[in-house]
């Protein structure tokens, strides 16, 4: 049991580095949103990419998934896949609803 070194203690410096990145990115994303990047979908893409990156930092380091077991990683993976599945399968309906040109089809 003593040999079992399950507890990986993350050095404080990692926390501070992640924290700094999160703060900087928050203000960057707020600032960029006021700039016209040429197309509003580009603005959306940048905002979402930054959000995904920030969330990944929190999951990997603050929530220790980077140092976690395979099972933890699997659970996180299933969560992301299922959420995307919910979003995109419903989107199949909403994207194609007008294709037929018949009301209600």
């Amino acid at each position: 049991m003593a040999a079992h070194e399950e507890h990986h203690v993350v050095p404080k410096s990692v926390y501070f580095a992640v924290f700094t990145a999160l703060i900087v990115l928050t203000w960057v994303t707020a600032w960029i949103s006021t700039k016209d990047l040429g197309s509003s979908s580009l603005n959306v893409a940048v905002a979402l990419s930054i959000a995904v990156f920030k969330a990944s930092l929190v999951v990997l380091f603050f929530m220790h998934v980077k140092y976690g077991t395979k099972l933890t990683k699997m659970i996180v993976g299933i969560g992301i896949v299922w959420l995307l599945m919910l979003l995109f399968i419903v989107m199949i309906d909403f994207w194609t609803r007008t294709w037929m040109g018949v009301a209600g089809r």
């Binding site: 994303t29 949103s33 700039k35 016209d36 509003s40 603005n43 959000a51």
Partner: peptide, 12 residues
Amino acid sequence: FLFPLLYLIDRT
């Protein structure tokens, strides 16, 4: 995620 989705829509 809520921050960009709710606050950052088309600020230009």
